[in-house]
Amino acid sequence: MSQFSGTYALIRKDIHSELRTRYALNALLMFVVTAVATILFALRSDQPTSSVLSGLYWVVVFFTAMSGLSRTFVSEEERGTTMTLQLVASPSTVYFAKLLFNTVLTFSMTIAVTILYMTVFSNAFVIKTFSIFAGTVVLGSLGFASASTIIAAIVAKANTRGTLYPVLSFPILIVLLMTVMNATTKALDGEEFTSALPDFQILVGYFLAMTGGSYLLFEYVWKD
């Protein structure tokens, strides 16, 4: 099985099994709704500033990701299909398939959060520089997915998966979180596209470094 066809087949398998139960999608969507509702209760009728809103935006994305993204590997362990996957595909094929699947999940999650934010904070959450916002969401989702995929692979082998996942991911994600919060604030404040270029450089560097490192190390995690 070549690299690309193998990756494609694994993603199709993941999407099929996801659509059969819709476990991750439903859980993620409900988590987003719950978190945003809690924020609304907390803020009451206050008008939050753009930095507060962009911070809360990524807080919702972070905790939603932490509640759902470990499924990709944990479900394989629970169903006992890890061995089969190890037999049929090379570690790098598995890694890139899971990375792409998690990227799709994260990206759809950020879109859900964005739509929800634009409706409930219709006055405060106005994206003034769309190019910055789009770049941040795309690059941020990529970085998020690449860090959380390798951590999910590690956590799937441990006993206390649920609590361990955010604990392990947070120190790794802090750089990314600070940068995307910074860039989102710029998008809400309507700054020029060029002002966000340093942030984008960090996001691209983070994604490349994290994916490269994970690619090299994944084999050690995956093979028992």
Partner: peptide
């Protein structure tokens, strides 16, 4: 194995700081 991998993944973020 896993703690070694984790410390190396964490090491990737150190240059950023």
């Amino acid at each position: 194995t896993l703690s070694a991998v984790y410390s190396m993944i964490a090491g990737i973020t150190v240059p950023f700081f």
